[in-house]
Design a protein around this nucleic acid. Structure first.
Length: 574
RNA sequence: GCGUUCGUAGCUCAACUGGAUAGAGCGUCUGACUUCGGAUCAGAAGGUUGAGGGUUCAAAUCCUUCCGGGCGCACCA
């Protein structure tokens, strides 16, 4: 249930039907009208800009138009008890008591689904996709949480989502990785000291992988890498990926599908995708210009397949083949995206780290070329995370090189706090994460603040010996809400809109901000009873007004729904 | 240099894809509570939304030119 959409349609219909009466010639602009909660200082439930929008296209005075609309609304919409006009031409509306009680009953009925807008799209969401050459670090962590929560959000809003991880298990870096594992194996078996050469992976986690390989295949023949390469490749990737999966699991993240680059190549999916582009005349065999700026020693002028991505707005055309004729990373990714497209999603989403911004145009171009501009690919970029401890930059890395691993982070902070903090900023802004703050139990700590709000509600129900999960009916006869309850109720109505907007813009951080605001309203109301007897809602261990209790229950319902989307736990006692 | 992204209160950030007097938190200054209605609450001060120009009833938001920070600019992944 979304009351904004509901009443927006009511108003639109009414105005369309009465266009003549209102002397409106042009009502095309109706698509631009919105309904929202008015600013805090106005004591109204809804606010609509319709008069201002239509005044423009019909060359009318907005305030006069608003006046005639006001009468129209009051005479025709039963649920509106009051309509006023504010300065430039806003219509401010109050909903009648009867309608409000019905709306509340509806929300309580919907409960766990309240806020969902019952969309029905099929999304493909690719996220994390960290190279299996090493452990996950903090940079991956933000994208991981972002992707997972975005998936939860879209699912909550009614959609189907496939969560995918693309495993780059092919190419030079992987060859180097497997070679590093091989050398570590020899180190263990033959006591050959591992010498760190350029391009090899020195990290100690390679030793762990080697140890696991020896455990599963004690008799592995370490004479020559080439002889065992395929086997060793498979084992190394499996164990390395296990390490990543394990970190993800601790963060509460589980992917539906892992797609392996090597499989795409083996099964000719890359080749077929490139052929498709060839058929459409987006591929040429030719020469690329030498890269400008720094001179690249390895650069050779060789005839190769090139994708004309500049046709679709990319800065330059992109190579599909390397010097040796094998596919580039980009070519594989074209194959991967063609594989995604073949599975008929309405929308593809890629979550990328900030260092991949430059890649977006290229892959977008590929998707456009593959689908004749039909499919939509949306690349969301997560900016950097900077870690702090007590205000000082946090640099700790026991064994993973010069970055902080997720494992290190999980040793310092719990999963709930990490998840919440990763969404405490919009994704396109850098994030400072001071995790000493997250360990405090006060207002500084937003997770705590929201959890505490929920715990308080539970404590109230406990004291009243009532079950929070019970369904209560609004007492419509005595329906009088005080100003704090009205504010809370309006915020509750806003929940479905927040969910919808966050889904539409693919911005899960809106959920965290919303929940914090709701918690603030609640805490404020709660403490009113300290100053003023009138606002105490319990007397002699009994609830004074059932409607107050229901408002509070609504808060609990929305917090439950919201925290479930975030994947953050909600203790009933703290 | 090119691309991209951001620039909002002393600090960290919001702002419903153009709406009303631009909102929170931290910090500062006041006050309430002295404890399971508990780890909070109330109030005050704090702004030319980086700068200029444009579009309109209405701009932090759109266009444009600058200034400044991040990221990227492979046949790597």
């Amino acid at each position: 249930m979304n009351i904004f959409k509901q009443y927006l349609n009511t108003i639109k219909d009414l105005i369309t039907k009465n266009a003549k009466k209102l002397e409106l010639v042009n009502i095309n602009a109706l698509s631009g009208i919105t309904i929202e909660i008015p600013p805090d200082k106005f004591d109204y439930d809804l606010s609509c800009n319709v008069a201002m929008v239509l005044a423009k296209t019909n060359k009318k005075n907005p305030e006069l138009l608003a006046k005639s609309m006001k009468d129209l609304l009051l005479n025709n919409v039963k649920s509106f008890s009051k309509v006023d006009i504010a300065k430039p031409g806003f219509l401010n509306i109050n909903i009648s008591k009867e309608a409000l009680s019905q709306l509340i009953n509806k929300i309580i009925k919907e409960k766990k689904n309240y806020g969902s807008n019952l969309k029905d799209d099929k999304y493909n969401l690719e996220f994390v996709s960290a190279n299996p050459t090493g452990p996950m670090h903090v940079g991956h962590c933000r994208g991981a949480v972002f992707g997972d929560v975005l998936a939860n959000l879209l699912i909550f809003n009614g959609n189907k989502v496939t969560k995918e991880y693309y495993v780059n298990d092919h190419g030079n870096q992987i060859t180097n990785f497997v070679q590093s594992v091989f050398l570590r194996l020899r180190e263990i078996k033959f006591n050959e000291k591992f010498k760190n050469k350029k391009d090899l992976y020195p990290g100690e986690y390679i030793v762990d992988i080697a140890k696991k390989i020896i455990k599963t295949k004690p008799k592995i023949n370490l004479g020559n890498l080439d002889d065992i390469y395929d086997d060793l490749h498979k084992l190394s990737i499996t164990f390395s990926l296990d390490m990543i999966k394990n970190d993800l699991k601790k963060l509460g993240i589980i992917h539906d599908i892992f797609v392996f680059e090597s499989d795409l190549i083996k099964n000719k999916i890359v080749e077929k995708a490139v052929n498709k582009l060839k058929d459409r005349d987006y591929v040429v065999e030719g020469y690329l210009e030498a890269p400008k700026g720094e001179k690249d020693k390895n650069w050779k002028k060789i005839k190769r397949l090139i994708f004309k991505s500049s046709v679709f707005g990319d800065d330059t055309d992109r190579a599909l083949q390397k010097n040796d004729g094998s596919w580039t990373y980009f070519a594989s990714d074209v194959g991967y995206h063609s594989f995604k497209i073949s599975r008929k999603f309405n929308s593809l989403i890629n979550i990328l780290g900030a260092d991949h911004t430059g890649y977006i145009k290229r892959i977008n171009a590929a998707v456009k070329a593959l689908t004749e501009n039909k499919a939509t690919l949306n690349c969301k970029v997560c900016q950097l995370v900077k870690l702090y401890k007590k205000g000082k930059p946090y640099k700790m890395s026991k064994r993973s090189g010069d970055f902080i691993s997720v494992k290190d982070l999980l040793g310092e902070v719990d999963k709930d706090s990490i998840r919440f903090m990763m969404l405490s900023r919009s994704n396109d802004v850098e994030l400072d994460f001071d995790f000493s703050k997250v360990l405090e139990k006060n207002k500084d700590n937003q997770v705590f603040y929201i959890q505490y709000c929920y715990a308080r509600i539970n404590s109230l129900f406990r004291n009243l010996k009532l079950n929070l999960n019970n369904t209560f009916e609004v007492d419509a006869k005595n329906f009088n809400l005080n100003i704090y309850e009205r504010k809370i109720l309006r915020k509750i109505f806003d929940w479905s809109k927040t969910v919808d907007l966050a889904s539409l813009k693919q911005e899960p951080h809106r959920i965290t901000f919303y929940l914090y605001d709701l918690a603030t309203l609640f805490h404020s109301y709660w403490s009113k009873g300290n100053d003023n007897e009138e606002f105490k809602f319990v007397k002699d261990s009994k609830i004074k007004n059932l409607n107050s209790l229901i408002i509070i229950q609504l808060v609990a319902i929305v917090i439950e729904n919201g925290m479930k989307i975030l994947g953050v736990s909600l203790p009933i006692k703290m």
